[in-house]
Design a binder for these strands. Structure first.
Length: 429
DNA sequence: TCTGGGGTCCTAGGACCC
DNA sequence: TCTGGGGTCCTAGGACCC
């Protein structure tokens, strides 16, 4: 039986999350800023109408924002993550075949649902998610993931569709008519660079792309381009992934809230990021062999001296033990740190990740380098348990510092209504 | 003054092997 | 002077996604 992919996409997700707990924001322009309050990463429809672009630096639109009384929020990932889980849990009530694609998107395979009217199913999904979570979603349904993305594009552009479009019963001609209206850069998998090249060769719409010479597509876009083209033709090439695969690399990095110059501040930051990354590592029950540390100055400040460097360390045995990782991280920082620069960003990367329990003993590790030491496992497990029970950062590592003056700006963050007791919603009556 | 963060996949090219 | 063929593995870089 043919696949029936429904793509459920939360509308203006972060902005919608802010509205769930603050109905006064309804029908008003809302934007959410990236970490460090740097760029605009989510906009309500009203904010889009004002001409605020995705990814636009905040300082460039400050005047526009004041003039139009736009409601501005720092990003509150704890809240968004929790609401995202609620949306996904709602989808699971329709089918077990759910792929969580991103924080605001999920695919559901409807093929086993034994229904004829997929549009109606889409409508039910939409209504249930809205009533259970407060989040409005768009639903696109088709035989391939890429076409479901296309359907979703049209749902957002066309209000009369009421949030749902199913292409399942569309003829090839009807689909082609839609593709003629769709810019080639709006196709999933075709980004800025590819669409520029395609346009130079006269391919402007999704329809043009669908009927281009596959040899040409392969030449400029490699195998991924061929898959996208096939998917537009209704041949499914990109399967749903129900299991979340373990990450092959875990990266934690942030810009600083101020210029950082001293080794000590960088040390605190590297230590903090390593703590976060190793928590992520353990949450997928893995260990890693390699840690990379990087630091850089701000490339936008053309008058400052620029410096950027990174350095890696390979462990003899895979580890997940935060103190060992921090120790390695700080010694790497020592190698690349140079005084006299304004540092703007630092980060760490864990790679060569293997599942816990599949480790191979090192033949040469005859001294006391016991990364897989059961005591260490137990200690760090207890640390995780305590932090999970009493909240993040109940137990911290001394090298991470306490005041953290280098930390990101997050001045306009709403409360974490659903994940933090101290910030639970209060109602005045 | 102020410009995000965290991932994936694919390919080309070099080193190395027999 | 003459100088194969077929692999694997690793890394860097470039594209994409949200």
């Amino acid at each position: 039986m043919k696949n029936v992919f429904a793509l459920i996409d939360c509308n203006n997700f972060y902005a919608s999350c802010e509205r769930v707990f603050n109905p006064l924001l309804e029908n008003k322009p809302v934007i959410v800023l990236s970490n460090n309050d740097g760029c605009c990463v989510a906009r309500s429809n009203e904010a889009k109408k004002l001409g605020i672009k995705m990814g636009e630096p905040f300082f460039k639109i400050k005047d526009l924002i004041e003039k139009n009384k736009v409601n501005v929020f720092s990003s509150n990932y704890e809240l968004y993550g929790d609401i995202s889980n609620r949306v996904v849990n709602t989808l699971f009530t329709f089918s077990p075949d759910v792929e969580v694609y991103s924080i605001d998107e999920a695919f559901v395979n409807l093929k086993n649902l034994a229904v004829n009217d997929y549009r109606n199913t889409g409508k039910q999904i939409r209504e249930k998610v809205l009533s259970w979570t407060g989040i409005p979603v768009s639903v696109g349904i088709s035989p391939t993931k890429t076409l479901s993305k296309v359907a979703n594009e049209f749902v957002k552009k066309n209000k009369s569709l009421n949030g749902v479009l199913s292409l399942i019963d569309y003829s090839e001609e009807e689909i082609d008519n839609l593709l003629r209206e769709l810019d080639v850069s709006d196709v999933w998998g075709i980004g800025r660079q590819y669409s520029k090249k395609l346009r130079e060769d006269g391919i402007n719409t999704a329809y043009d792309f669908k009927y281009s010479n596959p040899k040409y597509i392969q030449k400029i876009m490699t195998i991924g381009g061929i898959k996208t083209q096939q998917e537009l033709k209704g041949i499914s090439c990109i399967p749903i992934e129900y299991e979340i695969p373990d990450k092959k690399g875990i990266c934690t990095s942030r810009s600083f809230g101020k210029n950082v110059t001293t080794f000590n501040e960088l040390k605190e930051a590297i230590s903090t990021y390593t703590t976060t990354a190793s928590e992520k590592l353990r949450s997928q029950s893995s260990r890693c062999f390699r840690i990379t540390v990087f630091i850089r100055t701000n490339p936008f400040r053309v008058n400052d001296k620029q410096y950027s460097n990174s350095c890696s360390y390979n462990f003899q045995e895979a580890t997940q033990y935060t103190p060992d990782l921090i120790k390695a991280g700080i010694s790497l920082l020592n190698k690349i740190y140079k005084p006299g620069y304004y540092y703007q960003k630092a980060g760490i990367l864990l790679t060569e990740i293997i599942p816990q329990g599949k480790e191979q003993e090192s033949l040469f590790n005859l001294d006391n380098l016991q990364y897989k030491n059961p005591k260490k496992d137990l200690v760090i497990q207890k640390v995780d348990e305590i932090n999970s029970l009493f909240g993040n950062n109940t137990l911290i590592f001394g090298s991470s510092g306490i005041k953290k003056e280098w930390k990101i700006k997050s001045e306009k963050r709403s409360d974490r209504y659903t994940t933090c007791f101290k910030e639970i919603l209060t109602i005045k009556i």
